[in-house]
Nucleic acid binder design. Sequence first.
DNA 1: ATGAAAGCGCTAACAG
DNA 2: CTGTTAGCGCTTTCAT
Lengths: 334, 334
Amino acid sequence: MATGPTIRDVAARAGTSTAVVSYVLNDGPRPVAPATRARVLAAVAELGYRRNNLARALRANRSSTLGLVVPDLAKPFFAELTRAVEDAAFTRGFRLLVGSAHFDAERENEQLHALLDARVDAVLLVPSQEPKSAVALLRRAQIPHVLVHRTHPDTVCVAGDDTDAGRQAADHLLGHGHHNIALLGAGAGDDPVSLRARGASAALTDNDRPVPQWAVLGCPFPNLREEAYRATRTLLATRPEITAICATTDEHALGALRAASETGRRVGEDLALVSIDGTELGAYLAPALTAVTAPFDTLGADAVDAVLSSSGVAPAIRQHQFTLTVRRSCGCRS
Amino acid sequence: MATGPTIRDVAARAGTSTAVVSYVLNDGPRPVAPATRARVLAAVAELGYRRNNLARALRANRSSTLGLVVPDLAKPFFAELTRAVEDAAFTRGFRLLVGSAHFDAERENEQLHALLDARVDAVLLVPSQEPKSAVALLRRAQIPHVLVHRTHPDTVCVAGDDTDAGRQAADHLLGHGHHNIALLGAGAGDDPVSLRARGASAALTDNDRPVPQWAVLGCPFPNLREEAYRATRTLLATRPEITAICATTDEHALGALRAASETGRRVGEDLALVSIDGTELGAYLAPALTAVTAPFDTLGADAVDAVLSSSGVAPAIRQHQFTLTVRRSCGCRS
DNA sequence: ATGAAAGCGCTAACAG
DNA sequence: CTGTTAGCGCTTTCAT
């Protein structure tokens, strides 16, 4: 790969010094006479000069590159989040280095180290597991970072209001008059699925419709679809009184949809389904999925903004609201 | 961000020179005495030294970073391809910079320039449009590159055998005894959709089942799902003799599935559907999608391998085979 | 087998 | 307002 013209070549052609060229290129930190600036710009154009960002990064100790690690780049939720982050980064003049952790703590750790070694300016992490050790690593490295989607008390986090999302989902089902609602997803932790499940549970209980224990279905990561499918098959076979399902993620909903279809239940007709996530996928399922939708773009943008201004910011959860997207699976006839 | 210990610190602590430390760290290019090596390694461990890859990259003129630009990071097909590429890159010790082009030529161009400016070692491009100008740009920049998924005669390309994929899809439908098969997706270009459509068309014609012109539905990018949905609605309403649909991508299939569902046709029962792509999504649709599946991992791995060994390699299409994944939408009762 | 030193391309302090 | 110059941290020649 030919290295191309350097700032030196530009300076020579413009009959000035490298310092001035640098000032022009960066609009500072020193002023440059209009005439000189014009000559520099002309030289840049004529030579087709492009700055070597590696050198710039080394010198300035900032690379204009952000790092993002997600559990799985191909899962719709993370894919949409990644797109949002990339978009926000690009808009702000940053590049994005991505890594997939395969839902594996060890791999996540390696990805994080790869990013640190690459000297990214900041890292955004969508944790695959309980993020304690990852947060410790990031703190030790003294690198600006944010947790996205999943939180931890020791650092800055950008997340949806998962508890409220759970409530919204349950409330919608309640509004349809359902009495026997099952919950797909469960947990006692502070991960999104647990939070959503507890939020939904609370809404149900508040309305005198507490979910019996057998109707709360835990589905371990990362095989959400498959687990949800199995759980729903069993549920539908053993508990015919269930008329509605609240899925804590679109992945769960996908599994439930398949189970319902295979057992002859018509979702949107004799079985209501509301999901949480709201990935693009939902709009084209049959029936189209009613979902409590995460603000992907807002999450991505806020995560980038947070991490770029996070010099010494105190740990906090920057929380964003979900919005209900009504489609067909809940039984609404729009 | 504290910069941490440098190679100089390590050298000092090990009582040797920076050159030797470098030799140890890189296993070459010069040999180092076992005792010295041990001292260096000890110093590295004690100081928690981590090499500054920015400096290394500047000096060595290679960044161990690959760049990937795709039309849309969040679309399942590209998301799975991205995961495969990231995986292959990671395995080979490379980092991955990604960019989403939003199916826009201008944005694709900017993303490409961003990668060049970042001094990536090579770029992998999944073109959003006819790649002529992108290829020209890459050639001019003299940077190793591959086109993935879509081809161009002037450069190295890694792609599936789309024509054959079209044939496979059509053949499977033919095997089910269908006479009136519609084709979702069309085109005269050498993009995957056109190739698949023509492959399917050819298979049908070869078997004396040529598709009437009205049964070939063009669906312009990037709104494949929506376009396919509309086209299928119309088709189903006006041509009841159609008993099978061959979708050229899973996106098309998603739209068709929804249209079928809304008009009361039961896919897998009174309407057969075969798709091409085979994203993970298909397994959990209702009914599960029979699809001619792209070898995502192979494509990703081969693309990375190709671009890493592409010093002076002649333009060529490295073609990979699709495999049929039989599920329910075609009417098979497994 | 090892050390000293040059320099990758850039930015910014220092000196006019 | 502009030129000269010292490095950023690393790899690698050139000496020993």
